[in-house]
């Protein structure tokens, strides 16, 4: 089938198999390889992207389900060469080591900060429940997210457009 998905602010059209998962559409079709695959069971969160501004696991979603929607990946998080505060935070606080889980962590954290601009440590840890990191022991990831929350004005975080290429696509429910 043909899908049209706005990815990081650009409309992307492609022919995909019905069974194509969103993560493979991003990785294989669009060569946006920042989104990773770490498990088979929707458990690890390495594939987390934003779908219409909300964090989702792109390994558990068909590309077809994202048809007509807007997707933001890690590649779309910096704007005009300026890093998203979370990207800065992860670097500042050594919130990553091998980097494999990092894109998913950042996307999940971005969703958290949109909803809860000043989260407590407990709220952060709870929000990361679906993202596994094997390197950091999470300590510095928690600090990285706190750093981003502290160093950014709440409205900036809440309105992701200020930081990302999120495009709001008017969700059209298809009729005949």
């Amino acid at each position: 089938m043909q899908v049209e998905i706005n990815v990081n602010g650009k409309a992307r059209k492609a022919e995909v198999e019905d069974r194509t998962l969103l993560v493979y559409f991003l990785r294989d079709t669009l060569q946006l390889t920042g989104t990773h695959v770490g498990c088979d069971t929707s458990s690890c969160g390495a594939c987390t992207v934003h779908l219409d501004g909300v964090a989702v696991k792109s390994c558990t979603l068909l590309a077809a389900q994202a048809d007509g929607c807007s997707v933001t990946t890690i590649e779309g998080m910096a704007k005009d060469g300026e890093m998203h505060p979370l990207q800065e935070g992860f670097r500042e606080c050594h919130g990553l080591q091998c980097g494999y889980c990092t894109p998913g962590m950042i996307m999940t954290a971005a969703d958290l900060l949109k909803r809860t601009p000043k989260p407590s440590e407990t709220e952060i840890r709870f929000a990361l429940e679906g993202n596994i990191c094997r390197c950091t022991g999470y300590h510095n990831i928690v600090k990285a997210i706190q750093w981003a929350a502290e160093n950014t004005a709440a409205p900036m975080l809440a309105d992701s457009h200020l930081w990302t290429n999120d495009v709001v696509v008017e969700k059209v429910v298809e009729t005949e």
Binding site: G34, H36, E75, Q87, R91, Y100, T102, P103
Partner: peptide, 17 residues
């Protein structure tokens, strides 16, 4: 601060797959 981080936090890390 780590010099390698920039590519990882922007999705530009390049793993074998």
């Amino acid at each position: 601060k780590r010099r390698e981080d920039k590519r990882f936090i922007t999705g530009k890390g390049r793993y074998t797959d």
